[in-house]
Design a protein around this nucleic acid. Sequence first.
RNA 1: CGGGAUGUAGCGUAGCCCGGUUAUCGCGCCUGGUUUGGGACCAGGAGGUCGCAAGUUCGAAUCUUGCCAUCCCGACCA
Length: 492
Amino acid sequence: MSKEITSREEDYSQWYNDLILKGGLADYSAVRGCMVIKPYGYAIWENMRDQLDKMFKDTGHENAYFPLFVPKSLFEAEEKNAEGFAKECAVVTHYRLKTDPDNKGKLIVDPEAKLDEELVVRPTSEAIIWNTYKGWIQSYRDLPLLINQWANVVRWEMRTRLFLRTAEFLWQEGHTAHATRDEAVGETVQMLNVYATFAEEFMAMPVIKGIKSANERFAGAEDTYCIEALMQDGKALQAGTSHFLGQNFAKAFDVKFADKENKLDYVWATSWGVSTRLIGALVMAHSDDQGLVLPPKLAPIQVVIVPIFKGAEQKNLIDDKVKVLQQQLKAAGIKVKYDDNDNNRPGWKFAEYEMKGVPVRIAIGARDIASNVVEVARRDTKEKASMSIDGLAENIIKLLADIQSAIYNKAKGFRDEHITNADNWDDFIQLLDTKTGFIAAHWDGTPETEEKIKELTKATIRCIPLDNKMEDGKCILTGNKSSQRVLFARAY
RNA sequence: CGGGAUGUAGCGUAGCCCGGUUAUCGCGCCUGGUUUGGGACCAGGAGGUCGCAAGUUCGAAUCUUGCCAUCCCGACCA
C-alpha cells in the first residue's frame, strides 16, 4: 500500500494532486510554478497533439514557429491585449552574467549587459506574429493565411496548480488572417467545433460551446468563443478558446491587403488555442479514487498484459503465447504493453495499472492457456471477464470502443444532471452552495451585473451557449429584462 | 500578494514542548534465495547538508531571528 490516493470526498484538491504525482504524469520542479511533465504525462500530450495537429491540417492549416521573445514595443502595439497580459509577463532585461567579485563561485547579472529594449517572454504570440504577417500579406491572393504553432508560453501566475495553471505551459496557438469579416468569424467557429469534437470524441469529455461575456473575453478580441467542461467537483473548466479578433491586430500592426478592385483594407483575424491544461481536464473528468481513468483514444498504453505463473516452465509457455497475442494486438493498431517484470507480483501490477488508468488489463496464466482464454478487466467499471484467445484482437477493439463511449456517457450524464435552472436570486445562491455545476439563469447583459454577481458568489458567466433557446425572463440580480439564459458556475 | 499549515533518506513518518553518545520506524532501493490468479516472504546491505542561513550554547533536528519552498483557502488568471 505504498501509493494511497486521497479520496475525492476527503479532499478533492489532494485527490487531483495525488493522481498527477502518483500516476506519474508530472512532478514539481526546482522552478516556482513550473512543473516537469514526466514521460507518461507527456505521452498523453503527444497523443493529444498528434490528433489535434491532424485536425488542424485537415482544415487547411500549416505549422510554423515564432520567437519566444517579443520586443516590448511590439508587445504594447495592441493596447487592450498588452494591458490584459501586462501584469503576468516575465521580462528579459539583461543578456549576460558575470562572476561575482565579492562572492567567489557565484554569479551576478552583469549591469553592463542591459538590453536597450526589454524582451517580453510571450504570454501569447499575437504581437510577434502580426508584426511578421505585415510582411507576408499584400494582396487578397495571400489570404487566407492559416497558421498554427506548437509552443511554450509563460504567464506569471500568483497561484499555480499542476497542469491547470502553471507559469510555463505548452499549447498550440492558431493565428489566421482573412479577407472578410464573415470568413474570419467562420474560421473562429470552425476551430471551436474542432476543439469540441476533439474534447468529446477523443477526451470523452462533454463540452458546452458558447460565447464569453465581455468580462471574460480575451484581451484584444471582439468575441471569444469557448468550450466549457464540468469537473467532478462541480466546478467549470474552460477547455479551449477561439477568438474573433476583428481588425484590431491588423490595425495595430498595419496589416492591409489589396482586394480584387485594388482597394486597400485591413485584414480580419482569429486566434485559437488549447493547452496542457487539457490533461488536467482529462484527469478530473473521468478518474476515481483508485486512480486515473484514461479514454482509450488518448491512453499511452491501451492494453497491459500481466503474466501469472509458477516457475520458469510456465513463464516460458506464457511468454510464447503472449508474443503471438501481442503481435496480433499491435497489428490491429492497439497500444499494448507486456509487463513481465519479475520484481512485482500480479496484485501489485493490477493496482499499479489501475492507478495509471490503463483502459484494459489482460491477465494470462497457465490455466487460461489450457482453456484457450485470457482474463480481461476494464478499468472504468472494474469488470472482469473471460475472453477467448481466438479473435481476441477484434474483441479488444470492440471493448476499447465500449469503454470510450461508456466514460463519455458517464461524464455526460453527470454534466447534464448538473445544469440547473435558477429563476430567482435565492434559488441561485442555494444551488451554488448545495448542488454546484452549471446554473442556467437570466442576466441583464451588463458587465456591471456580472461583476456584482461574481463579487457576491464567486460564480462567473462561463458562456452564453451557442444553441441557446430565446426565452423572455428577468435578470436574477436586477430583475431587468433578459432574452436568454446564460450559464453561471464557479470555475477553475 | 494576504490568511492558515507544513518542511527529518526516493515516499510516508517518530523525536522537537523539556537541547546531550551512533536520528526512529514502515514502504521503496541493492544482493542472495523462496515466491507469483488482487499491493509476497526470509536473510543480509546501502542510503541523512534534520528546507537554507545566521544567532544563543561546552553542545542544536530540538531554542531565537531571517529567508526559501510546497500545500490549502482567498484575490488574479487558460
